[in-house]
């Protein structure tokens, strides 16, 4: 059982971590970061919650979701969601790689565009690699949370 101090601080700190994580994910193409780092940092935020609040809290209090798990051994239905997450992440990454085939390019071909007439920003630099990175992010988040949750349940 953790102390009030720990809980309170966690509530403040977790958003900071998550924001940092998302920032790292999005800026990855130009600055340090990327899908993997962002993903793992996200997972550490969850890990913090697990450590301070325990496994049940996340599921029951935060997500209000109780689902019958596929496997009896995994008490937490949320693990299911994690698994879907990494499956989907892989799918996203592969689909991102497959799209260029439609345009006659090779598998995993990446491109980038400047979207010019855009209010406020003027122009926005969009790289198709972001989609791939997003896939990486989901895989990492899903997979690591699965590991944490499963091992934690034991």
């Amino acid at each position: 059982m953790s102390t009030v101090i720990a809980r309170t601080v966690t509530r403040t700190v977790v958003p900071i971590i998550l924001v940092t994580a998302i920032a790292l994910l999005l800026q990855g193409h130009n600055l340090p970061g990327g899908g993997f780092i962002g993903g793992v940092l996200t997972v550490t935020a969850f890990a913090l919650i697990y450590v301070i609040y325990g496994l049940d809290y996340l599921e029951e209090e935060l997500l209000h979701q109780i689902r019958a798990p596929l496997l009896d051994s995994i008490r937490h239905g949320i693990v299911e969601n994690y698994q879907v997450a990494f499956g989907v992440g892989l799918a996203v990454a592969v689909v991102a790689g497959l799209v260029p085939l439609v345009f006659g390019e090779n598998f995993l071909y990446q491109s980038h565009w400047y979207i010019k007439p855009l209010p406020i920003y003027g122009k926005l630099h969009v790289a198709s690699a972001l989609a791939f990175d997003l896939g990486v992010y989901f895989v990492v988040v899903g997979a690591l949370l699965t590991i944490l949750a499963v091992v934690g349940t034991e």
């Binding site: 990855g28 193409h29 130009n30 970061g33 990327g34 990446q110």
Partner: peptide
């Protein structure tokens, strides 16, 4: 590549 972070690109 369209990115400044060569490693990430």
């Amino acid at each position: 590549g369209g990115g400044g972070n060569i490693v990430n690109v």
